[in-house]
Amino acid sequence: MKYLVINCDDFGQSPAMNAAIMHLLEERLVSSATLMAPAPGFEEAAAWCRKRGQTNIGLHLTLTSEFDALRWKSLTGDPSLHDEQGYMYQSVLEFERGANTKAVMKELDAQYELVRGYGIKITHADNHMGSLYGIAAGRSHIPQVLMRCARWKVPFRIFRRVHAGDVLATIEGVERAASKASALAGTLGVALPDYLLSHPFEIVEGETYESFKREIIAKLYHLPEGISETYIHPGLDDPAMMAAIPHWEKRVWEYRLMLDDDMHAAMKDAGVTLVDYRYIAAHGRESRFRAVRRLAAELLRRT
C-alpha cells in the first residue's frame, strides 16, 4: 500500500501563509501543518488551532530566519542563536557554525512549551530549512532532537530510505546518514516515515504552474510502497509577501495545486491514500531490537 502525508510547513510565518494553510486544513485537502513558534504570525495560527481543536498540528522547529524582509528572533534570546542584526541566522551554515548546542536545545524546549501552552496537542515535529541535520557543515543535532521527540512522544521528520527518483538521492552520503539516523530513532522509539519526497522550492528556469503540476502528479504514480511524506509551503497571492519573499509565486502554486481536482483525482488513480502523522505514530515505529542491531552495525562501519 502507498500512504502519503502532505504537511504544510511554515504555519505562523505570515498572514498570507496562515490563510492558505487554514483553508487547506479546513477542507481536509492536506494531512497536517507545523507551527513556527518564533515567527510573527504564530499567535494568529496557534489561536486558530486552539479555537478549532485542530488535531493534526506539529512543531516546525525553527532556528533560522532566511528572508531579508521577514526576520524573527529566538524565544530564549541566547546570543549564539542570532546574527549581528539580532535575528536568527539567515543560513544553515551560519547556524551550524555559530549556535551553542545547549542553547539550541533550550530554544527547542521553549518552542515546544509555547505551542503546548496554547492547548495544542502536538502530533509530530520537523525542522525548518533542515538546520538540525548537519547538511551544511556536518554539525548535526539529530541525536539531541530525537531524544527530545522520544521525551515528547512524537514522530519526527527524517526517513528510513531514499527514493531513487527523488532529489535527495543526489546528496552524497545521504543513504548512510538516513540509515544511521533512522536506527537511532528506532532505538529511542521514535516513529518515522519511510520516505521523504522533495522538490525545488524556487521557480526553476522555464517552469510554469502546469509543468510543476505534471511533475508532482508524476511522482504520485511512482510513489514507493510504504509511508511517504512530502511538504509544501502554501501561501495566498499577497502583494506584500510577493515583494518580500523570493520565488513567492511557487508558494501560490503549491496552494493552488492542493485545490486542483487533477491532483486529487491522480492520488485516487495512483492508489495513494492520504494519511497524517497519527498514522505514522501507529505504524512507523521500528522494533527496538532490530533498530539497536542496525545502529550497532552502522557505528562499527568504517566506510
Rank of each mutant, 00 (worst) to 15 (best):
V272D: 09
F156W: 10
E107V: 01
L29E: 00
A37M: 11
A125L: 07
A243K: 14
A46T: 08
S80E: 01
L132W: 03
E202C: 08
K102D: 15
I21H: 10
L220Y: 11
S80M: 00
T101D: 14
S131A: 15
D261Y: 01
I142S: 15
T273V: 13
P224W: 03
A39S: 15
T62C: 07
A296G: 06
A39W: 05
I135P: 05
Y255W: 15
R161Y: 10
H199F: 15
H60L: 11
R116V: 04
R256P: 11
I122S: 09
G165I: 01
I122D: 09
T208M: 05
M267S: 08
D261P: 04
E229D: 10
D269L: 08
K121Q: 07
L114I: 00
G119R: 00
S228L: 04
L70S: 03
A37T: 09
Q90E: 12
A110D: 07
A20G: 12
H222S: 14
E207A: 03
Y112R: 09
A69I: 00
A47F: 01
A191S: 15
R161C: 07
L24F: 06
S31W: 00
M242L: 05
A185N: 10
R97D: 15
E107G: 05
M105S: 02
Y3R: 08
R214D: 14
S65Q: 04
L132N: 04
F289P: 03
D78A: 15
L29A: 03
R285P: 08
C149I: 02
S74R: 04
E94V: 06
E27M: 14
N18S: 13
D276S: 12
G284T: 05
Y277D: 06
T55F: 00
A20W: 06
A169T: 00
R293Q: 14
I203E: 10
E202R: 04
A178C: 15
R288Y: 06
L274T: 04
E205Q: 14
A19R: 09
G53S: 06
G58E: 01
P15Y: 04
W248N: 13
Y255S: 13
V272Y: 08
H128M: 13
H264N: 01
P155S: 00
R251Q: 14
M88K: 03
I280M: 07
E229K: 02
L35G: 10
C8F: 00
L108W: 09
M129R: 11
N56W: 02
L274A: 09
A164M: 01
E27T: 12
